[in-house]
Structures are given as C-alpha cells and as structure tokens.
C-alpha cells in the first residue's frame, strides 16, 4: 500500500502544472464565535515534496491544519484536493480521502504493541462464519516489513509502545501515517519534544517518506528544520498566509523576518 507512487522523485520543483498540485487552499475562513482564526488563507501544496507552514503562536497554523484533517469544518472558502473540492466533516472523511495526520501527541496506545498501534481501527480480519478474527500473524508481518522498509529504528514490532524512546514513538506514529496514507501526510510539530539525535532520525524518516512518493505537509517552529526538509514554505500571520517561497530562495534570517512581519513578501 505504500509502493503505488514510489518512483516519484523527492525534489521535483521544475514543473508547476495544475497536475502537480496536491492541495489548494482557497480563501479558507474559520471563526470561533467572534474570534477570527482564519481570515481567507490561501496556499498550495505540490505533489511529492515537503511543504512547510511556519508562523508565530496564534497565527492560525493549527486551525488550518485541522481544517485539512477534517477536525474543523471551514466557515468559508474551499479546499481542493487532487483537483476536486473536498468536504471533510470529520477525521474519518479525510482519512478516506487518503490524508493521514500525525498529531503532536501522536495518539498512540502505550500499552499496546507497535503492530497493534499501526493497525489500530484498521485491523486485518479473517471471516469464520458470522465471526471475524484478527489476522495477527499477517499484521505483524506487514508491520515488520514496513518498519524495515522505512528503516525505522524500533526494537521489535511486538514491544509495547511504552517501552520505546521518544524518537521511536514518533517513528511509529509516522510509520502508521505512511502505511495508511494514499498520497499525503500532515505532520504537526513532529520533532517538538525530541532531542538532537532523535530529531535527525525523524527527519531522515520524513525524507524517505517523500522519496516513496508521499506529499508531506509539516507544521514547524524550527526554521533550520524547515530549511533542511522542505521545498516550499508558507508563512502565516494573524489568520492569513502572508507569503510563500521556494525554501532554497530564503535564508533563516529572512524566514524569521517574514514570521515577525519585519520583511514583507509578495505571495
């Protein structure tokens, strides 16, 4: 299920045809009572590369991401995925649309094993009369293969998640996203709670994910990480996307300036 588009290259920034756009966010608005969280946000995410969203706290990054994952329903504007207008009413809709999300708190069941977590709510079953039984061996096998393919550093697929390190837990959550995503993964602050070494491991995993043909949208506070990982970066401020650029064209200092508003950019 991950090998459908494996041949795509990771940094494919030459073409800009409409076919290469995975997601287009058009004038998306979101209100919470009288508070305007998003006031007409626009951005595009190209297929097969890493797009980053940066911005200060309260800029509307999380709200925008939650509109994309179906957790929030936008009050205005539209979200176009693969050329079609998407109407996600809940996270299951987004998931069925092929978009997986790795939340900041990971949503792992600590006392369950790695493979159980990876197949959570999407277990493989075998029908016996009116009953359905888990295909435990098959799930372990598939989880193991996937983990090895991604070179994820997890001691054993049958270990409980509780016994893994922070980076390994993150790797399991991302591997689960990769496993079920049909084209796109959204990562919300994937390395916020990790040390240097673990951050490097997770970043390597994200790069491999893109090499396998997935589109990645990442929300990050870490400008160096954005520089290392992404091909395109969008800057949000006060509920709007105030600018976007190819990552190679900006320096760290310029990014900081864009976020704080010291540098103005043409979108």
């Amino acid at each position: 299920m991950t090998d459908n588009t494996r041949s795509r290259s990771s940094f494919d920034n030459g073409a800009t045809g409409a076919g290469d756009i995975k997601v287009e966010v058009r004038d998306v608005e979101k209100l919470f009572g009288s508070i305007v969280a998003l006031r007409g946000a626009n951005l595009t995410v190209r297929k097969g590369e890493v797009t980053a969203i940066v911005g200060d706290n309260g800029a509307g990054k999380s709200t925008l991401v939650k509109c994309l994952t179906g957790l929030y329903v936008p009050d205005g504007g539209e979200i176009i995925i693969d050329g079609e207008v998407a109407h996600f009413r809940n996270p299951d809709d987004a998931r069925e649309g092929g978009i997986e999300t790795v939340y900041q708190d990971l949503a792992l069941s600590d006392q369950l094993s790695v493979w159980q977590n990876m197949f959570m709510s999407r277990e493989l079953v075998r029908r016996v009369g009116p009953f359905k039984f888990l295909r435990r061996k098959e799930m372990k096998k598939q989880a193991k293969t996937l983990v090895e393919d991604l070179a994820v550093t997890v001691p054993s697929i049958t270990n409980s998640v509780k016994r893994l390190s922070g980076g390994q837990r993150q790797a399991v959550a991302i591997a689960r996203g990769v496993m079920w995503a049909k084209g796109m993964i959204i990562l919300d602050e994937p390395t916020a709670a990790l040390g240097l070494r673990e951050t490097a491991q997770v970043e390597a995993l994200i790069k491999r994910t893109v090499d396998q043909g997935q589109t990645v949208l990442i929300v990050s506070h870490n400008f160096e990480q954005v520089k290392r990982l992404s091909s395109q970066v969008w800057v949000m401020r006060a509920g709007q996307v105030v600018g976007g650029t190819r990552t190679v064209d900006v320096t760290n200092e310029e990014l900081v300036g864009m976020v704080t508003g010291a540098i103005q950019l043409a979108g």
């Binding site: 998931r95 949503a107 069941s109 959570m120 709510s121 039984f133």
Partner: peptide, 28 residues
C-alpha cells in the same frame, strides 16, 4: 480470551482503556 485477543473489539477495548483520547483520534 478469543474475544479479548483475537477480535477487533478486544483490541479496541484495550486501546480505549489505555488512552481514550488516542483511541478517539484513531476513529474508535
């Protein structure tokens, strides 16, 4: 035993007991 370890319900029951928020985020 079969219900707890060899059905989806058993796995989901343990997941809910472990962390109801995570279980909900996974669509349980």
């Amino acid at each position: 035993h079969v219900v707890l370890f060899h059905t989806r319900f058993g796995t989901h029951l343990l997941a809910v007991g472990d962390n109801a928020d995570a279980a909900k985020a996974m669509g349980l």
